[in-house]
Computed example of a mutant assay.
Amino acid sequence: MYNELILNNISKHIHLEADEQAHFMSLLQPLKLKRKQIHLYRGEVCKHSTFVLSGCMRGYTTDFNGFEHILNFAPPDWWIADMYSLISGQPGHITIDAIEETEVLLLSKADQEKLYIQIPQFERFFRIITEKSLVSYQERTLENLSMTAQDRYLRFCKRYPTLINHIPQKYIASYIGVTPEFLSKMRNDLLKQSK
Protein backbone atom coordinates (compact mmCIF):
# COMPACT_ATOMS: atom_id res chain seq x y z
CA MET A 1 0.00 0.00 0.00
CA TYR A 2 2.78 2.45 0.94
CA ASN A 3 4.66 1.65 -2.25
CA GLU A 4 1.49 2.54 -4.12
CA LEU A 5 1.14 5.91 -2.34
CA ILE A 6 4.62 7.18 -3.25
CA LEU A 7 4.56 5.71 -6.75
CA ASN A 8 1.19 7.39 -7.40
CA ASN A 9 2.68 10.65 -6.12
CA ILE A 10 5.51 10.37 -8.61
CA SER A 11 3.28 9.25 -11.48
CA LYS A 12 1.47 12.60 -11.30
CA HIS A 13 4.56 14.11 -12.96
CA ILE A 14 6.66 11.37 -14.59
CA HIS A 15 6.27 7.83 -15.96
CA LEU A 16 8.54 5.07 -14.64
CA GLU A 17 9.02 1.57 -15.99
CA ALA A 18 8.72 -1.32 -13.50
CA ASP A 19 12.52 -1.70 -13.13
CA GLU A 20 12.89 2.06 -12.52
CA GLN A 21 10.18 1.94 -9.87
CA ALA A 22 11.96 -0.97 -8.17
CA HIS A 23 15.29 0.85 -8.23
CA PHE A 24 13.75 4.01 -6.78
CA MET A 25 11.99 2.04 -4.02
CA SER A 26 15.27 0.32 -3.11
CA LEU A 27 16.79 3.73 -2.27
CA LEU A 28 14.09 4.71 0.22
CA GLN A 29 14.61 4.32 3.95
CA PRO A 30 11.48 3.85 6.09
CA LEU A 31 11.29 5.68 9.41
CA LYS A 32 8.69 5.82 12.17
CA LEU A 33 8.41 8.96 14.26
CA LYS A 34 6.65 9.31 17.57
CA ARG A 35 4.32 12.19 18.34
CA LYS A 36 6.36 15.40 18.86
CA GLN A 37 9.59 13.66 17.79
CA ILE A 38 12.01 16.04 16.07
CA HIS A 39 13.03 14.89 12.61
CA LEU A 40 15.31 17.83 11.78
CA TYR A 41 16.62 20.47 14.17
CA ARG A 42 17.17 24.07 13.18
CA GLY A 43 20.91 24.47 12.58
CA GLU A 44 21.36 20.95 11.20
CA VAL A 45 22.07 20.24 7.54
CA CYS A 46 19.03 18.67 5.85
CA LYS A 47 20.24 15.51 4.12
CA HIS A 48 16.94 13.93 3.05
CA SER A 49 13.77 14.59 1.15
CA THR A 50 11.01 13.14 3.32
CA PHE A 51 7.78 11.65 1.98
CA VAL A 52 4.92 11.25 4.47
CA LEU A 53 3.09 7.93 4.35
CA SER A 54 0.87 8.37 7.41
CA GLY A 55 0.50 10.89 10.22
CA CYS A 56 1.49 14.52 9.79
CA MET A 57 4.62 16.65 10.05
CA ARG A 58 5.20 20.37 10.34
CA GLY A 59 8.06 22.72 9.52
CA TYR A 60 8.49 25.69 11.83
CA THR A 61 10.86 28.31 13.13
CA THR A 62 11.10 29.76 16.62
CA ASP A 63 11.60 33.49 17.14
CA PHE A 64 13.75 35.19 19.79
CA ASN A 65 10.80 35.26 22.19
CA GLY A 66 10.33 31.51 21.93
CA PHE A 67 7.18 31.69 19.78
CA GLU A 68 6.78 29.05 17.09
CA HIS A 69 5.82 30.11 13.57
CA ILE A 70 4.61 27.19 11.46
CA LEU A 71 5.67 27.50 7.84
CA ASN A 72 4.11 24.35 6.41
CA PHE A 73 2.47 21.02 7.11
CA ALA A 74 3.03 17.67 5.44
CA PRO A 75 0.07 15.28 5.69
CA PRO A 76 0.16 11.89 3.91
CA ASP A 77 1.22 12.07 0.24
CA TRP A 78 3.30 15.24 0.79
CA TRP A 79 7.05 15.83 0.70
CA ILE A 80 8.85 17.94 3.32
CA ALA A 81 12.42 19.20 3.78
CA ASP A 82 14.32 22.35 4.70
CA MET A 83 14.73 23.27 1.03
CA TYR A 84 17.37 25.93 1.67
CA SER A 85 19.54 23.49 3.60
CA LEU A 86 18.91 20.51 1.30
CA ILE A 87 19.91 22.46 -1.80
CA SER A 88 22.76 24.55 -0.35
CA GLY A 89 24.23 22.00 2.05
CA GLN A 90 24.24 24.73 4.72
CA PRO A 91 22.74 24.51 8.23
CA GLY A 92 18.97 24.91 8.04
CA HIS A 93 16.60 27.49 9.47
CA ILE A 94 13.60 25.32 10.28
CA THR A 95 12.74 22.50 12.63
CA ILE A 96 10.65 19.61 11.34
CA ASP A 97 8.74 17.36 13.72
CA ALA A 98 5.88 14.88 13.81
CA ILE A 99 2.55 16.23 15.04
CA GLU A 100 1.38 12.65 15.63
CA GLU A 101 2.78 9.18 15.12
CA THR A 102 4.07 9.37 11.58
CA GLU A 103 5.61 7.02 9.05
CA VAL A 104 7.87 8.43 6.35
CA LEU A 105 10.21 7.38 3.58
CA LEU A 106 13.58 9.12 3.36
CA LEU A 107 15.50 9.73 0.15
CA SER A 108 19.03 10.92 0.81
CA LYS A 109 20.38 13.91 -1.09
CA ALA A 110 23.22 11.69 -2.38
CA ASP A 111 20.78 9.08 -3.74
CA GLN A 112 18.60 11.81 -5.20
CA GLU A 113 21.62 13.15 -7.11
CA LYS A 114 22.40 9.63 -8.38
CA LEU A 115 18.79 9.23 -9.53
CA TYR A 116 19.18 12.28 -11.77
CA ILE A 117 21.84 10.38 -13.71
CA GLN A 118 20.39 6.85 -13.48
CA ILE A 119 16.76 7.82 -14.21
CA PRO A 120 16.79 11.33 -15.75
CA GLN A 121 13.00 11.77 -15.33
CA PHE A 122 13.64 12.26 -11.62
CA GLU A 123 15.37 15.54 -12.36
CA ARG A 124 12.07 16.72 -13.83
CA PHE A 125 10.10 15.32 -10.90
CA PHE A 126 12.17 17.05 -8.23
CA ARG A 127 12.32 20.26 -10.26
CA ILE A 128 8.52 20.32 -10.24
CA ILE A 129 8.43 19.61 -6.48
CA THR A 130 10.98 22.38 -5.84
CA GLU A 131 9.08 24.85 -8.03
CA LYS A 132 5.82 24.07 -6.20
CA SER A 133 7.60 24.60 -2.88
CA LEU A 134 8.94 27.98 -4.05
CA VAL A 135 5.50 29.07 -5.24
CA SER A 136 3.94 27.94 -1.96
CA TYR A 137 6.44 29.92 0.13
CA GLN A 138 5.92 33.03 -2.02
CA GLU A 139 2.15 32.71 -1.66
CA ARG A 140 2.53 32.34 2.12
CA THR A 141 4.66 35.48 2.31
CA LEU A 142 2.15 37.49 0.26
CA GLU A 143 -0.76 36.13 2.31
CA ASN A 144 0.91 37.19 5.55
CA LEU A 145 1.59 40.67 4.21
CA SER A 146 -1.72 41.41 2.52
CA MET A 147 -4.54 39.16 3.74
CA THR A 148 -6.78 39.38 6.77
CA ALA A 149 -6.62 36.61 9.37
CA GLN A 150 -9.95 35.29 8.13
CA ASP A 151 -8.71 35.11 4.54
CA ARG A 152 -5.51 33.37 5.70
CA TYR A 153 -7.65 30.82 7.56
CA LEU A 154 -9.84 30.19 4.52
CA ARG A 155 -6.71 29.75 2.40
CA PHE A 156 -5.37 27.26 4.99
CA CYS A 157 -8.64 25.30 4.72
CA LYS A 158 -8.26 25.15 0.94
CA ARG A 159 -4.57 24.18 1.06
CA TYR A 160 -4.90 21.56 3.82
CA PRO A 161 -8.54 20.34 3.80
CA THR A 162 -7.72 17.10 5.62
CA LEU A 163 -6.12 18.95 8.55
CA ILE A 164 -8.91 21.38 9.52
CA ASN A 165 -10.40 19.10 12.19
CA HIS A 166 -7.44 16.75 12.48
CA ILE A 167 -4.63 18.75 14.09
CA PRO A 168 -4.57 20.88 17.26
CA GLN A 169 -6.06 24.33 16.77
CA LYS A 170 -2.92 25.94 18.22
CA TYR A 171 -1.00 24.72 15.16
CA ILE A 172 -3.51 26.25 12.76
CA ALA A 173 -3.40 29.50 14.76
CA SER A 174 0.41 29.54 14.56
CA TYR A 175 0.29 28.89 10.81
CA ILE A 176 -2.07 31.81 10.12
CA GLY A 177 -0.40 34.10 12.67
CA VAL A 178 -3.09 34.52 15.33
CA THR A 179 -3.66 33.35 18.90
CA PRO A 180 -5.68 30.15 19.48
CA GLU A 181 -8.35 32.25 21.21
CA PHE A 182 -8.67 34.56 18.19
CA LEU A 183 -8.89 31.53 15.87
CA SER A 184 -11.67 30.00 17.99
CA LYS A 185 -13.68 33.24 17.90
CA MET A 186 -13.11 33.64 14.16
CA ARG A 187 -14.23 30.05 13.47
CA ASN A 188 -17.39 30.62 15.51
CA ASP A 189 -18.09 33.82 13.57
CA LEU A 190 -17.62 32.00 10.25
CA LEU A 191 -19.94 29.23 11.42
CA LYS A 192 -22.65 31.79 12.29
CA GLN A 193 -22.23 33.48 8.89
CA SER A 194 -22.69 30.19 7.06
CA LYS A 195 -26.06 29.51 8.73
Score class of each variant (00 low, 15 high):
F126W: 12
L191K: 13
E44H: 10
Q37R: 07
C56P: 04
K12L: 06
Y60A: 15
T141W: 01
K170Q: 14
L16D: 01
I6T: 13
R35T: 15
S49D: 08
G92Q: 01
N3E: 12
Q169S: 14
R140H: 04
R42T: 13
D19L: 00
H48P: 07
E181S: 13
I94K: 06
K109C: 05
S194Y: 13
N188C: 10
K32L: 14
E44C: 05
P76W: 04
F51G: 00
K185E: 07
V52F: 07
C46S: 14
K185H: 06
I94H: 05
F156I: 08
K109E: 09
K32D: 14
K36V: 02
C46R: 03
R140Y: 01
I14P: 01
S85V: 04
R152L: 11
M1V: 12
F73S: 10
R35P: 01
Y2W: 06
S88C: 03
F67P: 00
L105Y: 13
V135I: 15
K170M: 10
I117K: 12
K114Q: 14
I87K: 10
R58T: 11
I96S: 07
H166L: 12
L28N: 00
L134M: 14
K132S: 13
H13D: 07
K170R: 15
Y153C: 04
